[in-house]
Design a protein around this nucleic acid. Structure first.
Lengths: 234, 234
DNA sequence: ACCTGAACACCGTTCAAGT
DNA sequence: ACCTGAACACCGTTCAAGT
């Protein structure tokens, strides 16, 4: 049956729901996941919400704030363990691994983290945990404070580097295949270097290009935590 | 006296010398130093050389290559000590400090280093030194290889963060003053956090915001080198 | 108060045309 | 071979005008 004349549609079904900051940030994260951080432009996010870029400025002060909001939204995915002072070294590592996992699940969001002082609630939650568990483990306050900094920087930097391998190569093959062709390119280049000027690099090509990113990450993490532990009282 | 007719000017004084890759990179570094990495655009570099952006593409494949060439040119400024295996831990630190010094002398060039596998001769020279001195100091190859990575990442990340404080604030006051107002802003924010949710952050505000960048950097560096040393044979 | 279209002042890169 | 002007397909942000 056709609708009788003079009858308005029941609710006008507003397919374009009103803009909210939360909706904007959610859309931005969708674009991030699909197209990487460089794909997250004000225009692209607006398009995702069927509007123009100027409309976003009523809910977000600009690109920088949007970046920070995206990061904190993503940081909510980080799961923290039950604090156990006996295992503080292992727990510090666990959290670092978990943050890395979440950063890597969202393209190159780590770039934002690296360029920011943490202020969002979800980021602070992580810092609070690390400070708490290190303090309980006997790391003095000054050392613990600087240690969260160093740990955060390390996780961020490693994630940025790793994300880059994925993007620099074409979007063709599988991520692992991409990483492999990338690494073997580097290996060939290092092997072809003049041996008299770079004897150690040439001799250590295999070690320099060894390990998936996981082993490399674990090694740096282990180094950091050993160093932090050397500041703890027994 | 006027110049007689039919006489060409002595040498035509080519005020716009022909473009070379070296000249382009030098101009790019000048822009970098004066206006930061974001100021280095193909257009701006071309302008510096009295030409248009399209002219650069005959000597440089694009923006990425220009960035890498800039970094390697700047890396030439890094001075390496005479290798002394007895003092390998101190020398590894010295080089890290020196790289940090040079990166910070050139705005936020560290961002390029972080997003790159080192291939330029001057960058490789630094890596070669670190590998050599650690090997001589008794660090096994696998550990030394991963250690250069971690050290590089740490220096780069610290320099990126530090460069950011300078840029985010206005260009008004002195760098130290900028850093100070920036840090005290952070301190106020942390102090105002709800104490029940973030007890350690609130309690450790002073430690978290303490120290000029130098002490913080030294601490992270010390942690890393202690960790590396724990892998060395005695 | 929120949303919008149009504009401003930029980007990196390409390409046909010149020398 | 090198250089150029003009154009293409983008940016972030502002602002007057609408509802």
């Amino acid at each position: 049956m056709p609708t009788p004349p003079g009858r308005k549609p029941r609710k006008a079904a507003p397919s374009r729901r009103p803009l909210t900051q939360d909706g904007i940030v959610a859309a931005a994260v969708r674009v991030l996941d699909a197209e990487g951080l460089d794909g997250v432009t004000m225009r692209r996010v607006a398009q995702e919400l069927d509007t123009g870029p100027a409309s976003l400025y009523a809910h977000v002060s600009g690109k920088d704030e949007l970046n920070e909001l995206m990061l904190d939204r993503v940081a909510a995915e980080v799961r923290l363990p039950e604090p156990d002072p006996e295992r503080w070294q292992e727990q510090v590592k666990e959290v670092a691994r978990e943050v890395r996992r979440v950063w890597q699940a969202h393209a190159d969001i780590a770039r934002v983290s690296l360029a920011m002082v943490p202020t969002g609630a979800n980021l602070l939650r992580i810092a609070e945990f690390q400070l708490a568990v290190m303090s309980a483990g006997g790391v003095p306050p000054a050392a613990a404070a600087l240690a969260v900094d160093s740990l955060g920087m390390y996780v961020d930097a490693e994630s940025v580097e790793r994300a880059m391998y994925g993007t620099k190569l074409g979007e063709g093959a599988s991520p692992e295949e991409q990483l492999h062709t990338f690494i073997s390119g580097i290996r060939d280049y290092y092997k072809a270097l003049p041996q008299d000027r770079f004897p150690h690099i040439v001799a250590m090509v295999d070690e320099l290009t060894a390990g998936g990113g996981d082993e490399r990450f674990e090694f740096g993490l282990d180094i950091l935590v050993r160093g932090i532990a050397s500041h703890a009282r027994p």
